[in-house]
Nucleic acid binder design. Structure first.
Length: 980
RNA sequence: GCCGAAGUGGCGGAAUUGGCAGACGCGCGGGAUUCAAAAUCCCGUUCUGGCAACAGAGUGAGGGUUCGAUUCCCUCCUUCGGCACCA
C-alpha cells in the first residue's frame, strides 16, 4: 500500500485510500458460513432521487454501520446490504416532462447515490446490491404477486392456503356455492345425496367459466373489485388512502376526488388480527406499535339487524355500544350504500338523489372542510328498532362512511357526539339511556370546581365531603379499615357506588397515603345537598352534550341499572337468541388498493381472456417486462400508458387471444420483500434459497425513518406472513428490532427545505471535513431517535476531536509518536482506558452513540496530558473508535504497524476491577443541602463513611446546636445527615 | 378534537431501580505562543448578590410523596410528530 505517509490528518486521501482498499479486498463481502453466529442489520433503502442523499440518510446508515462493524469485531457473520427503491413517481413525472426514459433517470440517480453512499465508508456488501426496477428483481416481485393471486385465506385456520386446494374442494363438491355466491360446505356430501341440494345452491360444475373466475376472485388474496377510489386527475392515477394527505395527493399536492373504479386489491384485512397480535413480540418502540395498532383499528361490538318498515329488507349496522340500543332514535346510511335507492320513497327521491350526486362530487378535501357542519337527507323510509319496536327514520349523510362497518349506523344522539350534532341540527329526538356513574356525574356537574389535591388539602367551604371509591381506581383499597380508623361514615348508593363521608374538620388530619398508593377523590358536597339526597335524580338532567362515557342503564326497560359492560354482554346474547344480531369485530384497516395507472412500476403478471376470465401468467414466463412507450403521459381515462401499446397489450394464452393487465404495482411492492432478496441477490431460480433464508432471517436490526412507521412496515409484515403461510419463509415476523432515527432540522431549527435555503449538502460536509467527521458528528448530535438541528460548528468540533487523536498518536514525521511505547501506563491512565472500553461497549449496545463519543473525547483529553502512553492502550482505543471513524482508524492501525484491515480484529475487552477508582469524592448533605465534599477510599464501610462525613468541619458548623436524627449513606454517592 | 414524544445554561445535549444537575461538544471571555494570523495550549463560563470567601435560587408552571425529586404522583402550559366524522 502507499508509503506517502504524511504528518497531517489528510482526511481526503485517507478516506479515498481505505474506500479503495475495502472495495479491492472485498473486505465486507459476506459469506454464507452457516456455522457462524449471524447478525442481519438492515437499512431502509433509499429512493434514488435526483437531489441525491440528504443529511438525514447518513444518520441511520451511520448508526447501522457502527452496529455492523461492532458485531463483526465481536465475531458475528454480519449481513449489511444496500439497494434502491427505484420505482416511483418523480422519475416518471420527469419522463412526462422531458421524454427521458425513467430507466435513464433512474440509472443516473442510482449511480450518483451509490457514489455518495460509498463516500461515507459504510461497510455494505456491495455484491448484494439490488434495484427494484431491475427485471431480475421485479421478476420475483411478480412471482410474489402470483403467490398472493393463487392463495386464499382460510378463515377457520386463519392462514393463507393455495387456491388450488379450494378449487379441488369445489370440484369434488365438498364445497358448494350458495345463492348469494358464498362458498358453503356441502352438508349432504356423505349422505349419498338423499335429499337434493338447498334451493339455489349450485355445484362448481354448473358454473360458467366467468362465474367460476368471479367466485375464485372473491377468495384470492389479490383480487379485482369495483371500489370507490381516490382518483387524482392531475397525476392520472388512483392513489391509496395513505397517499392522500388532507384531500390532496402526497406527491405534488394535487386534488383528489372519489370515484368508483375497478382496481386490484390485496386482502390485507384477512390478516388484521394476526398483524395486531404479533406486534406484541416485537422489539419496536411502544409508539410505533401503537401507531400500527391504531391503524389496524380493532373494535369489538355487535352487528344488529334493523328491519325496514313496509319494505322487509334488513339494514345491518355495527356498533361498539349495543347497550345504547334503546337510545337509537334514527338511522343513517352512507350515501353510497346500495340499499339507498331501493328504500327511498318517491317524495324524497329528488332530494336524496341530489345529495348523493353532491357527496360523490366532493373531494376528500371538501369533505374535511365541511366536517364542521353535518349534512344529510331523510330517505322517507323507517326502520324498526328491534329492542323496542319503535319506528325510527332512516337518513343518509356523508358522516357515515361506506367503507367502515356495514356503511350504516344506528344513531344514538344522547351518547355519540356526531349523532348528537346531527340530531340537534335536524331536530331528531334524543333519549338518554346511559347515566354516568356517580363519580363521573359529579365531575361532569362540577368539573371546574375542584381538583383532586384541592379537594383534599384545600379550604373548601362546607363541612361535609366524601371520598369516591370505585373498583377501577382503588382495586385493592381496604376501605373498611379506612372507615374504622378515620371515622368516615359509609354511605351506599343504589347503583352500588360506595361513599365514605367525613366531617370537614376531621379530614385535614388524615393521612390518606397510609391507605392508598393513589389518592382518592375527595369531594366537598355541602353546597349540593340535592346530590346526596338522590344522586340519580341529579345526574338525569337533560344532556347539554353527548355523554360518551360508561355508566349504568336508564330508559332501557328490563336492562335498567345494568352497568355498561354487563349490559353489552346481556344484550348481545339476547340479540343472538332472537336472531337479530351477533357479536362482531371491525377493523379500520381496509384492503390494500394495489394498482396504479402509471408506466413506471411493476406490470401485473396477469392476462385477461375473451371469456371474461382472469388468469395468471405462468411462473416460467416471468418477468413480464415493461415495454418502451412513445409517451409516458397517463391516458387520463383511468388506463395506464401501457394500454396504448397494442403489440404489448395483445398476446395469446394457449393459442387463445389474451390481453395483458395494463395496471402497474404501487411503489410499495418492491420494498415489501427486498430484505429477503439480499439473502441471495443473484439467484435466478428462486427469489432466495431456502437454506439462506433459514440462516439469515429474521432481520436482527432494522433502522430507518419514522415516516414508514405504518405503511411500509405493515405491508412488508403482511407479505411476510403470506410467504410464511405458504412455507417460503420460516419466521412469522421479518424485523425483530426496529429503531427509528430522528429528523435532522436545519440550523434554524426548521425542517430542511429548498425554499427555506437551510438544506445541508452531505457532499460538501464530506469535502470540507471528511466522511469520518460527518459520521461522528451525526452520531454526536444527540440521541439517535431525537429530532435535532444541524450545526456546522458542531461538525468542526468533532473534526477537532479527530485532529487531537491524530496528534496523540502520530508524530511530526507521520510515524507513530515517540511518546507511545511499550512501557506500562500508570494506574490512572489504565483506568481511563478500561472505563472507556466499558462505556463505549455498553453505549453501542444501547444505541447511545453520542455518549460513547464523549467518553472517547475524555480519553483523548486525558491521554494528551500523559508524558507517555502505552502502545497496547492506544491500539485498543483505535479499535473502539473504528466503527465510528473507520477510515481514520484503519490509517492509524496501519501506521501502528499492522498490515491487515482492523475490520475483523476482536473487540477490546475491559477488566471491571480496573474501571474502579481507589478513591472517590462524595457529597455530604445536611437536610438535603450539600455542605461539603470529601474524598475517601472507595472501600470504606458505611459506618466509616458516616464517621468521616460527620467529622467534616463544614458539617459540624451546619449541625451545630442540632440533634442528628438519622444519617443516610449511599455508597459511592453521598451522605445525608438529618438533624434538627 | 384524539393519540404519541418531548420541555434542563447563550446553543446541541449529559445525568433517572429517586442520591453531587449541567459530563462531552459548540459559543463566549481572559491568557500563552506568534512579527502577525491560522492552528494549538492553559484558565474561566447556570443565574442573582458580593472584590472575595461565600450566600441564595435553579431542570416548562403549580402542587404532592420523600431524609433527598430533572427522575415518582396529580393538575396545567408549551413545542414537535402522527391521525382525523372509523359508529
Amino acid at each position: 500500500m502507499n508509503n506517502n505517509q504524511t504528518a497531517q490528518y489528510d482526511f481526503n486521501n485517507i478516506e479515498k485510500k481505505w474506500q479503495q482498499y475495502w472495495q479491492q479486498n472485498r473486505t465486507f463481502a459476506t459469506s454464507d458460513d452457516f456455522s457462524m453466529p449471524k447478525y442481519y442489520v438492515l437499512d431502509m433503502f433509499p429512493y434514488p432521487s435526483g437531489d441525491g442523499l440528504h443529511v438525514g440518510h447518513p444518520e441511520g446508515y451511520t448508526a447501522s454501520d457502527i452496529i455492523a462493524r461492532y458485531k463483526r469485531m465481536n465475531g458475528f457473520n454480519v449481513l449489511h446490504p444496500m439497494g434502491y427503491d427505484a420505482f416511483g413517481l418523480p422519475a416518471e413525472q420527469y419522463a412526462i416532462k422531458t421524454g427521458t426514459h425513467p430507466r435513464d433517470t433512474t440509472v443516473k440517480n442510482i449511480n450518483r447515490i451509490r457514489q455518495q453512499i460509498q463516500s461515507l465508508g459504510f461497510s455494505y456488501d456491495w455484491d448484494r446490491e439490488i434495484d427494484t426496477t431491475d427485471t431480475k428483481y421485479y421478476r420475483w416481485t411478480q412471482w410474489i404477486f402470483l403467490q398472493l393471486f393463487n392463495s386464499y385465506f382460510d378463515t377457520e385456520q386463519q392462514r393463507a392456503r393455495p387456491i388450488s386446494e379450494l378449487l379441488e374442494a369445489l370440484e369434488n363438491e365438498s364445497l358448494l356455492i350458495d345463492p348469494a355466491g358464498q362458498i358453503v360446505p356441502n352438508q349432504n356430501k356423505d349422505l349419498e345425496a338423499l335429499a337434493g341440494l338447498p334451493i339455489g345452491t349450485r355445484t362448481w360444475a354448473e358454473l360458467t367459466p366467468a362465474q367460476r373466475s368471479e367466485i375464485l376472485s372473491n377468495q384470492r388474496l389479490a383480487y379485482q373489485a369495483e371500489v370507490a377510489v381516490n382518483w387524482c386527475p392531475e397525476l392520472g392515477t388512483v392513489l391509496a388512502n395513505e397517499e392522500v394527505i388532507g384531500g390532496v395527493s402526497e406527491r405534488g399536492g394535487h386534488p383528489v376526488i372519489r370515484k368508483p373504479m375497478r382496481q386490484w386489491m390485496l386482502r390485507i384485512t384477512a390478516y388484521a388480527e394476526r398483524l395486531l397480535d404479533d406486534l406484541e413480540g416485537l422489539d419496536w418502540t411502544h409508539g410505533i406499535k401503537k401507531l400500527q395498532a391504531d391503524w389496524i383499528g380493532k373494535s369489538t361490538g355487535a352487528e344488529v339487524d334493523f328491519t325496514i318498515d313496509e319494505h322487509g329488507a334488513t339494514l345491518k349496522v355495527f356498533t361498539t355500544r349495543p347497550d345504547t340500543l334503546f337510545g337509537a332514535t334514527y338511522m343513517v346510511m352512507a350515501p353510497e350504500h346500495p340499499l339507498v335507492p331501493e328504500i327511498t320513497t318517491e317524495p324524497q327521491r329528488p332530494a336524496v338523489e341530489q345529495y348523493i350526486t353532491q357527496a360523490a362530487r366532493k373531494s376528500d378535501l371538501d369533505r374535511t372542510d365541511l366536517a364542521k357542519e353535518k349534512t344529510g337527507v331523510f330517505t322517507g323510509a323507517y326502520a324498526i328498532n328491534p329492542v323496542n319496536n319503535q319506528r325510527i327514520p332512516i337518513w343518509i349523510s356523508d358522516y357515515v362512511l361506506i367503507g367502515y362497518g356495514t356503511g350504516a349506523i344506528m344513531a344514538v344522539p344522547a351518547h355519540d357526539t356526531r349523532d348528537f350534532e346531527f340530531a340537534t341540527k335536524f331536530n331528531l329526538p334524543i333519549i338518554q339511556v346511559v347515566a354516568p356513574t356517580l363519580e363521573d356525574a359529579y365531575i361532569i356537574n362540577h368539573a371546574k370546581e375542584f381538583t383532586t389535591t384541592e379537594a383534599i388539602e384545600g379550604d373548601s367551604l362546607g363541612f361535609m365531603g366524601f371520598l369516591i371509591l370505585t373498583k377501577e381506581i382503588h382495586p385493592t383499597a381496604d376501605w373498611e379499615k379506612v372507615a374504622q380508623e378515620t371515622d368516615h361514615r359509609k354511605i351506599e348508593l343504589p347503583n352500588g357506588v360506595v361513599l365514605y363521608a367525613v366531617p370537614h374538620e376531621a379530614r385535614r388530619d388524615i393521612d390518606y397515603s397510609k391507605y392508598f398508593d393513589k389518592l382518592p377523590k375527595y369531594v366537598d358536597i355541602a353546597h349540593d345537598p340535592q346530590f346526596m339526597k338522590d344522586p340519580k335524580a341529579t345526574i338525569r338532567h337533560p344532556l347539554q352534550e353527548a355523554f360518551t362515557g360508561e355508566g349504568f342503564a336508564v330508559n332501557s326497560d328490563q336492562f335498567n341499572d345494568l352497568d355498561t359492560d354487563q349490559f353489552k354482554t346481556k344484550i348481545t346474547n339476547w340479540l343472538a337468541e332472537q336472531g337479530l344480531g351477533n357479536a362482531a369485530i371491525n377493523y379500520k384497516l381496509r384492503d390494500w388498493l394495489f394498482s396504479r395507472q402509471r408506466y413506471w412500476g411493476e406490470p401485473f403478471p396477469i392476462l385477461h381472456l375473451e371469456n371474461g376470465t382472469t388468469i395468471a401468467v405462468d411462473e416460467s414466463d416471468l418477468p413480464v417486462t415493461l415495454p418502451d412507450v412513445e409517451t409516458y403521459q397517463p391516458s387520463g381515462t383511468g388506463e395506464s400508458p401501457l394500454a396504448t401499446i397494442p403489440e404489448w397489450l395483445n398476446t395469446t394464452y394457449n393459442g387463445q387471444p389474451a390481453q395483458r393487465e395494463t395496471n402497474t404495482m404501487p411503489q410499495w411492492a418492491g420494498s415489501c420483500w427486498y430484505y429477503l432478496r439480499y439473502l441471495d441477490a443473484h439467484n435466478e431460480l428462486a427469489p432466495f434459497a431456502s437454506e439462506k433464508e433459514k440462516y439469515w432471517m429474521p432481520v436482527d436490526l432494522y433502522i430507518g425513518g419514522a415516516e414508514h412507521a405504518v405503511l411500509h412496515l405493515l405491508y412488508a409484515r403482511f407479505w411476510h406472513k403470506v410467504l410464511y403461510d405458504l412455507g417460503h419463509v420460516h419466521t412469522k415476523e421479518p424485523f425483530t428490532k426496529l429503531v427509528n432515527q430522528g429528523m435532522i432540522l436545519g440550523d434554524d431549527n426548521q425542517k430542511m427545505s429548498k425554499s427555506r435555503g437551510n438544506v445541508v449538502n452531505p457532499d460538501k460536509v464530506i469535502n470540507d471535513y471528511g466522511a469520518d467527521s460527518m459520521r461522528l458528528y451525526e452520531m454526536f448530535m444527540g440521541p439517535l431517535d431525537a429530532t435535532k438541528p444541524w450545526s456546522m460548528q458542531g461538525v468542526e468540533g468533532v473534526h477537532r476531536f479527530l485532529q487531537k487523536v491524530w496528534r496523540l498518536i502520530i508524530g511530526p514525521e507521520g510515524k507513530i509518536h515517540t511518546n507511545i511505547t511499550d512501557q506500562p501506563n500508570d494506574d490512572a491512565a489504565q483506568r481511563t482506558l478500561h472505563k472507556t472500553i466499558k462505556k463505549v461497549t455498553q453505549d453501542i449496545d444501547a444505541f447511545a452513540f453520542n455518549t460513547a463519543i464523549s467518553q472517547m473525547m475524555i480519553f483523548t483529553n486525558e491521554y494528551l496530558r500523559l508524558p507517555h502512553c502505552n502502545r497496547a492502550a492506544i491500539e485498543s482505543f483505535t479499535l473502539i473508535l473504528a466503527p465510528f471513524a473507520p477510515h481514520f482508524a484503519e490509517e492509524i492501525w496501519q501506521r501502528l504497524g499492522h498490515t491487515d484491515s482492523l475490520a475483523y480484529q476482536p473487540w477490546p475487552t475491559y477488566d471491571e476491577s480496573l474501571t474502579q477508582d481507589p478513591e472517590i469524592e462524595i457529597a455530604v448533605q445536611v437536610l438535603g443541602k450539600i455542605k461539603d465534599r470529601i474524598t475517601i477510599p472507595a472501600d470504606l464501610t458505611e459506618d466509616q463513611i458516616k464517621e468521616r462525613a460527620i467529622a467534616s468541619e463544614k458539617v459540624q458548623q451546619a449541625i451545630a446546636g442540632k440533634t442528628v436524627r438519622k444519617v443516610i449513606v449511599i455508597k459511592g454517592r453521598l451522605v445525608n445527615i438529618v438533624a434538627n
